[in-house]
Design a protein around this nucleic acid. Structure first.
Length: 576
DNA sequence: GCCGTTTTCGGCCCGACTGTTTTCAGTCG
């Protein structure tokens, strides 16, 4: 028994430990493990029961990695990994989190000074022994001393939830666009790929006046400490310890710079390989044939020159998109303009709702929707929910408003609460009064896998339920989701025709990319929603769509891309 | 460790910045 997740964790640990062992994160063996990791990530099915020859068909997985996966399945361990773990015990690994300390320096610290852990390093620093090592000096010693002090605040492994940095990144970029000579400023990196957690903020600035950009950056009130400042790159730390890198390029190099700084690393390496195959060179400054520029101004031009389809940023994870784009086989991805309605939508009928029905309807029209379903909380969610009487009065108002607005269809829905046993609000008859229901969990996060799975399965079997909202109830970086037998849940969804929600709230982003990808493979319908509680939350539809793109979601699999009639047919099908 | 219409062996992405250096190594992305 070996799951994809287990194989990926094994490889991720091998990447880390082998980089130390080889003395370089660029060592070929390390890169081979990285490629295998990306290959497995992009492989939709589970690994269970796969033979060696089937495993080696996965991109990047060769003989040796296949053996390790089989070994892991058979014995629960991998000998190679065990011996590396012994060689690099956890206290020593802690040291790799210190910015500025790479494998070479660590090796030398251990061999020359006997440093085995953080305390040993602190002592060596206190005794000013580091400056005696070859390649290190007084400044390096001071830098490391400083890095130790703030370890934990922003170690190299620290990832911050997207929700905590998205606004800051946009705001910094907007302020840079106001600087003289700046044509465009874009947050790139994992933010642009819409990864749910972020290492640091990368901003690419197309400008004719890089000095003015650097000057502006250094004067930002967010700057707590300047990490580096060169001709083209300015880096600083915020008080929260988030690193921000601002790179300037000339406007005619914007495309190659965006591409380069958006990554991912694996995607970039694959693209550069394609350039090399054609006798060219690809860098952040452009695609070059000797001294001649083949393309550099737009990303589209570069992909075209490399004879590939354009790859949307959320797809650029090195999990098969380069090959697919080269073969012209990228799917038609879901886009924001495919979405015709929002089906998880609160008004101030909910205790935690902040905007009125009218305000939410106007906002929906503004967003270009053909329909919305108000899904205020049911009675089981004590403070935020509504009694039957309140719901019926609410329905009357919704029907009146629906009659009053020609440009949008307004549906009477409910967000049902899934209780610990899978029970739902009201009674079966009352629940069928709603035009549409999304059922979600809001409490009891600590039940066993079996209990969580069966409560979801029971809820989705109810004929009033059209979709399961925020499947795991996670808050990115704050609260882990409930543990579920995902395969069993997906099978239940596929059999009943209940949709799986991709919730666009940045702190939820639930279902996750991995679950969504598996849902597609299992034939499950999807719905992309905002879970809006205020008119300002409607921007989440764009987030939900971009997050869904990471799972290669196509519009034909998303029920709220259907025109109103088609959607209503889909919704009533369940109710018979 | 992986991979192959120039290869089953010999390759494997590219550049900025810093600190240590008189031409480069280490780290980072």
């Amino acid at each position: 028994m070996v799951t994809r997740g287990e194989a990926m964790r094994m490889l991720a640990e091998l990447v880390k430990l082998t980089a130390l062992d080889e003395g370089s994160p660029q060592a070929f063996k390390v890169r081979a493990y990285e490629k295998a990791l990306a290959g497995i990530e992009g492989h939709p099915g589970d690994l269970d029961g796969m033979t060696k020859s089937q495993l080696t068909e996965i991109k990047g997985v060769g003989n040796s990695t296949a053996d390790k996966i089989l070994e892991l399945g058979k014995t629960g361990k991998v000998a190679k990994l065990e011996s590396l773990r012994e060689k690099y015990p956890p206290p020593f690994l802690e040291l790799t989190k210190i910015p500025g300390l790479g494998p070479k320096t660590l090796k030398s610290l251990r061999a020359q000074l006997g440093v085995e852990d953080l305390d040993g390093l602190k002592e060596a620093v206190a005794q000013q022994k580091l400056r005696e090592l070859p390649g290190l000096g007084e400044k390096s010693e001071e830098k490391i001393a400083k890095a130790i002090e703030r370890l934990g605040l922003h170690g190299k492994d620290r990832r911050t939830p997207l929700v905590e940095v998205y606004g800051l990144a946009r705001s910094l970029a907007q302020r840079l666009e106001d600087v003289d000579g700046v044509e465009q400023a874009e947050p790139c990196g994992s933010i642009r790929r819409f990864s749910e957690t972020i290492g640091d903020i990368d901003i690419v600035v197309a400008t004719t006046n890089p000095a003015a950009v650097s000057e502006t950056v250094l004067a930002f009130p967010e700057v707590s400490e300047v990490v580096g400042a060169g001709d083209t790159k300015t880096s600083f730390l915020t008080r929260e310890g988030m690193q921000v890198d601002v790179r300037t390029v000339s406007p005619d190099q914007l495309g190659s710079a965006l591409m380069y700084f958006t990554g991912s690393k694996t995607h970039n390496i694959a693209l550069r390989q394609r350039a090399i195959d054609r006798g060219w060179l690809l860098s952040e400054y452009g695609l070059f044939d000797g001294d001649d520029v083949v393309a550099s101004e737009t990303e589209e031009a570069i992909y075209e020159a490399l004879e590939m389809q354009f790859v949307e940023p959320p797809l650029r994870e090195g999990s098969g998109e380069v090959e697919a784009a080269a073969d012209g086989e990228l799917p038609e991805l879901i886009q924001r303009n495919h979405i015709r309605g929002d089906l998880h939508y609160h008004s101030d009928r909910s205790g935690d709702g902040r905007s009125s029905l009218e305000e939410m309807i106007e906002a929906g029209i503004e967003a270009g929707y053909e329909y919305v379903a108000f899904t205020d909380h049911g009675e089981d969610l004590a403070i935020n929910g509504s009694s039957r009487e309140e719901m019926l009065a609410h329905r009357d108002r919704i029907r009146q408003l629906d009659a009053a607005y020609d440009e949008i269809k307004i549906l009477f829905g409910c967000e049902l609460n899934i209780g610990p046993d899978g029970d739902l609000d009201y009674d079966a008859g009352f629940r069928l009064e709603f035009d549409y229901c999304v059922a979600s969990i809001h409490s009891h996060f600590d039940l066993s896998v079996e209990e969580q799975t069966s409560r979801i399965l029971k809820a989705l079997a109810d004929p009033s339920v059209n979709a399961i909202g925020h499947l795991t109830g996670r808050y990115v970086g704050r609260r882990p989701g409930v543990e579920l037998d995902i395969d069993a849940v997906l099978e239940g969804l596929a059999v009943t025709g209940v949709a799986l929600e991709v919730n666009g709230a940045l702190d939820r982003l639930d279902a996750t990319t991995d679950v969504t990808r598996r849902a597609l493979a299992a034939g499950v319908d999807l719905v992309i929603d905002t879970d809006s509680h205020h008119t300002i939350d409607l921007v989440r539809m764009g987030y939900g769509v971009r997050y869904a793109q990471r799972a290669w979601v196509t519009p034909d699999r998303v029920i709220n891309t259907l025109p109103l009639d088609g959607f209503l047919d889909w919704a009533v099908r369940r109710r018979g």
